[in-house]
């Protein structure tokens, strides 16, 4: 997760308007999911993956590792569709032409959508994502919760790491029994610490005249005509492919 976040801040598309990325991703996902052929999702998968690797500069090895996660889940899920089970007259398994088609369509549709989501999360820092949500008129409270939770995750991961080190250095994880005991202590102290952290954070916000709203400056982006044309052209291309096949 930390690596995804690092990518989001250090990719080559960081200065592209987040709204452009968001629209691109959402439209592509809709096209991908509503597609009835197998060609369009494969095309989307290839295009979006190459955009992520070549244009955004996400390391290919890291990207493929990430893609393995949905790949694994999908693979297992698709098997159950691929193999049909018959109980009449006797228990038998079969793979039919139709089941292959359904399974592969489902597989590529889902994988194509996953690549779109990866494209977004690997190129857009959370701060930009929340500014998109703000423009979409999501309630402030939800947006503030998202950004606070995001920030606190890093603090908690950091604290958990330190407690874990402190426990390991005293052989806290040397045997199975110790592991269970140490882990339970880690979890309970995390609970208390997160409560304390939240309290401290509130005090520090209060000292800066907090009035119930987390007012912050949004980063300014400019829409680029070139990008918008690119999005329209590529989406039209996907849709045309869908009808041609």
């Amino acid at each position: 997760m930390l690596n995804i976040d690092k990518c989001a801040y250090s990719n080559n598309l960081i200065n592209v308007h987040p709204m452009e990325k968001f629209i691109f991703v959402m439209v592509t996902i809709i096209v991908c999911l509503s597609s009835n052929s197998i060609i369009t999702p494969i095309l989307i998968l290839l295009t979006v993956s190459s955009l992520t690797i070549l244009k955004a500069g996400v390391p290919a090895k890291f990207y493929f590792k990430l893609m393995l996660i949905p790949f694994g889940f999908l693979f297992l899920g698709v098997i159950t569709i691929l193999i049909e089970i018959h109980t009449e007259p006797a228990l038998s398994f079969s793979i039919t032409q139709q089941s292959i088609e359904t399974a592969s369509k489902l597989f590529f549709r889902a994988l194509g959508s996953a690549s779109c989501l990866y494209f977004f999360s690997l190129t857009t820092p959370l701060v930009d994502f929340t500014s998109v949500l703000k423009k979409l008129k999501l309630p402030d409270i939800l947006i503030e919760l998202i950004s606070l939770i995001y920030r606190l995750i890093f603090i908690l991961v950091y604290i958990a790491g330190r407690i874990h080190t402190a426990q390991s250095s005293r052989l806290g994880y040397s045997s199975l029994k110790n592991q269970f005991r140490s882990l339970s202590q880690l979890v309970s102290s995390m609970f208390i610490l997160s409560y304390k952290k939240a309290n401290d954070l509130f005090i520090s916000l209060e000292s800066r005249c907090y009035n119930g709203n987390l007012n912050i400056l949004e980063k300014q982006y400019c829409f680029s005509a070139k990008n918008i044309v690119f999005i329209i052209v590529i989406e039209l291309f996907f849709i045309l492919m869908e009808f041609n096949v």
Binding site: P125, L126, V127, S147, L148, Y150, R151, K197, D200, L201, I203, S204, L205, R208, L214, N215, I216, L217, E218, K219
Partner: peptide
């Protein structure tokens, strides 16, 4: 305990 924002500029603007 003081930094709540994910971004330096935003933190300072609070």
């Amino acid at each position: 305990t003081q930094l709540f924002s994910a971004n330096v500029c935003q933190e300072v603007s609070f």
